[in-house]
């Protein structure tokens, strides 16, 4: 394990290369088995002096410090992020190369020892399966307790927790307004166009958002025709019944509403019934009409609570 004689490089290698290194020297073969064959040389391997190392390390240390200073300068002067990143990568690369040098030149090989008696107690600790095998009563009572706890927690949660609200901010006569709070007229929605609308007093309350769509053809069954303005102006909840994403895309070609999150597709002519994808419920239709001044108003709330269909059945 005497290091320096084995090293073949006669001169200090230049600090620019990853450098040709020899195979790990020293105890490349693991010593087998324990105890006696452990290197008995005094002092840890890190102490073994290697006169050539400082030149290497100095070279890379200089490059690393240069990179660090350059990176700090780049950050301080507001140079572009790319320059900052490239400069700061240098010291880490230099550190890696120095360590690579140390690893390759000072490696003392693998060690091995017999697990045998020395580790018998440590290695016998894997109780998981053993316990399950040997203590059926304990396991059964644990399962029973967990089940009881789960039922209790479930009942407690249902009784004590907050509940998701039903219905929405829409009610008969509530005006439809735009993102900016301006009231909407039927004429504001061009043919084949979609406008996002809110209840007048609940702009940006996500669950109440609707899309007002002017269809190119007459709506069909099962659309609530009593809640349609000008025969073709319909309003649907904007919140997908699948995952609650905004159904933000409208495909004029087949008058389909399309959710960018998971590709749920709804037929805008047929009460926004799902036609493809993961959604199982239609987007609730908001029945709309016009008031005396010709502005759009809701005729009623949604027929069902808008938003994703949850695991609980609405009563």
């Amino acid at each position: 394990m005497s290091g320096s004689e084995e090293r073949p490089e006669p001169t200090p290698p230049p600090p620019d290369a990853g450098a040709p290194h020899t195979e790990p020297t020293g105890g490349g073969r693991p010593t087998e088995p324990a105890g006696a064959s452990r290197p008995s040389e005094p002092g840890s391997p890190i102490d073994r002096s290697d006169e050539r190392s400082p030149v290497w390390i100095l070279g890379w240390a200089l490059i690393g410090v240069a990179g660090l200073v350059g990176g700090a300068w780049a950050v301080a002067t507001g140079a572009s992020t790319e320059v900052q990143a490239a400069a700061l990568a240098v010291p880490f690369m230099a550190t890696a190369i120095v360590f690579h040098h140390l690893v390759v030149t000072r490696d003392a090989g693998e060690l091995s020892f017999e697990r045998g008696e020395r580790l018998a107690d440590e290695l016998a600790e894997d109780h998981v399966a053993a316990t399950i095998g040997r203590r059926p009563l304990l396991v059964r009572s644990a399962v029973a307790a967990a089940a009881l706890g789960a039922v209790g927690g479930l009942v407690g949660l249902r009784q004590l927790g907050p509940r998701r609200g039903r219905g929405s901010a829409w009610a008969p006569g509530v005006p439809l307004v735009t993102n900016d709070g301006d009231r909407l007229r039927p004429g504001d929605v061009p043919e084949g166009g979609v406008v996002t609308a809110w209840p007048q007093d609940a702009v940006d309350v996500e669950a109440a958002a609707v899309m007002v769509i002017r269809l190119r053809q007459d709506p069909l069954d099962p659309t609530d025709l009593g809640g349609v303005v000008d025969d073709r102006l319909v309003a649907y909840s904007r919140i997908c019944t699948h995952a609650g994403c905004p159904v933000a895309l409208y495909r004029d070609r087949d008058q389909a509403l399309f959710c960018p999150c998971h590709q749920a597709t709804f037929d805008a002519r047929r009460a926004a019934t799902p036609t493809f994808g993961p959604a199982s419920g239609p987007l609730p239709q908001l029945p709309i009409g016009t008031d005396d001044d010709g502005f759009l108003v809701a005729l009623d709330d949604f027929p069902v609570t808008p938003g994703p269909l949850g695991g609980e059945v609405e009563r």
């Binding site: 949660l157 927790g161 998701r164 949850g310 695991g311 609980e312």
Partner: peptide, 10 residues
């Protein structure tokens, strides 16, 4: 919300 029985609370 999709978890049965407790979703509307959870």
């Amino acid at each position: 919300m999709s978890i049965p029985l407790v979703g509307d609370t959870l």
